[in-house]
Design a protein around this nucleic acid. Structure first.
Lengths: 125, 125
DNA sequence: TTGATATGCAACCAAAGGTTGCAGGAGGAG
DNA sequence: CTCCTCCTGCAACCTTTGGTTGCATATCAA
C-alpha cells in the first residue's frame, strides 16, 4: 500500500448515503420492509416530493428498488447493494484508522529517537 | 434496541466527510502530516479557494486544526476527532448490517414457516 | 359518477461546491 | 528601503442539489 488509496470508492454511493434524509429513509425502509414516497414522507420532516426525489437518487445508486403496485409505488432496500455500501464505509474507516495508527507509531519512534539518536530506521509512508 | 436508532450521529460530522473533496483532503493531510490551502490545491482538481472553504468546514467540524506560520496557514488532522468520526462511520455501518442480518433471519423463518405452519414465533422488529 | 388518495411534473428558492478577480500581508533579493 | 513573489482572505457570480408549492393525472372505493 503506497499510493493515496482508500478512495477507490464509488463517489455516487457516498453521496447517496451522505445525505441525512436519505440515511433516515434507508433506516425506515429497513425497519418497515418497504414504503412509498407518501408513507415515508409522513415520518420525515420533509414533503412527499422531496422524498420522491431522494428515492430517485437512491434508486440510481442501486440502493433501493421500486415497483408499482396499483396506484402506489413501493420501494424496498436492495440488501446486496446496501451490504456493499456498508463494506465501503468501513473500508474508508479502516484506511483512516490505519493511518492514525501509523502516525502514532511514528510519533513514538520519534520519541525513542530523541533519547537514542542511533539506528534511525525509517518508518515513513 | 427498539426505536429507529442508528442515527445518533452528528450530522455535521457526516456532511463534513460526506464530500469527496474533503475526504481526499483528509487523506492528503494524513499522509503528508500537514498542508496549506495552496499545497493541497496543487494535488486536487479544484482551486485554492475551494480548498480554503473546505478547510473552514473541516475546521468547524473539528476534524482539522490550522495555525498561522509566517505568511502561510498550516493545517493538520485532529487525530482524536477523526478517530471519533471513524467510530461513528462504523457505527452506522454496524446498525445497517444488524438490520440486514435480522431481515435475513426473518426471511429464513418465513421459509421455515411455509413448510411447517405450526408455532409461528414472531421474530418481528 | 364522484370523491379521496398516490403519483408525476414544473416552477421557484436557498444553500453548497466551484470559479474568477482583486486587495493585502510576509519573506527574500536587490 | 524597495521591489518582486507567494500565500492568504474577501467578494461576486454560476451551477447543482435539497426543499417547497401548485397542478394535472391515475387508481381505488362508495
Amino acid at each position: 500500500m503506497n499510493a493515496p488509496a482508500a478512495e477507490q470508492v464509488d463517489d455516487d454511493l457516498w453521496s447517496a448515503i451522505g445525505d441525512p434524509t436519505r440515511r433516515r429513509m434507508l433506516d425506515l425502509l429497513l425497519s418497515e420492509g418497504e414504503g412509498t414516497a407518501t408513507t415515508l414522507s409522513r415520518r420525515l420532516p420533509v414533503t412527499r416530493q422531496a422524498v420522491a426525489k431522494h428515492l430517485v437518487v437512491l434508486d440510481r445508486a442501486g440502493l433501493v428498488r421500486g415497483r408499482p403496485a396499483g396506484r402506489e409505488k413501493r420501494y424496498q432496500v436492495d440488501d446486496a447493494q446496501l451490504a456493499r455500501a456498508v463494506a465501503q464505509l468501513s473500508s474508508v474507516g479502516a484506511a483512516w484508522d490505519a493511518r492514525l495508527q501509523r502516525i502514532k507509531r511514528i510519533a513514538e519512534t520519534v520519541q525513542r529517537t530523541r533519547r537514542d539518536p542511533k539506528h534511525t530506521q525509517d518508518q515513513q509512508d
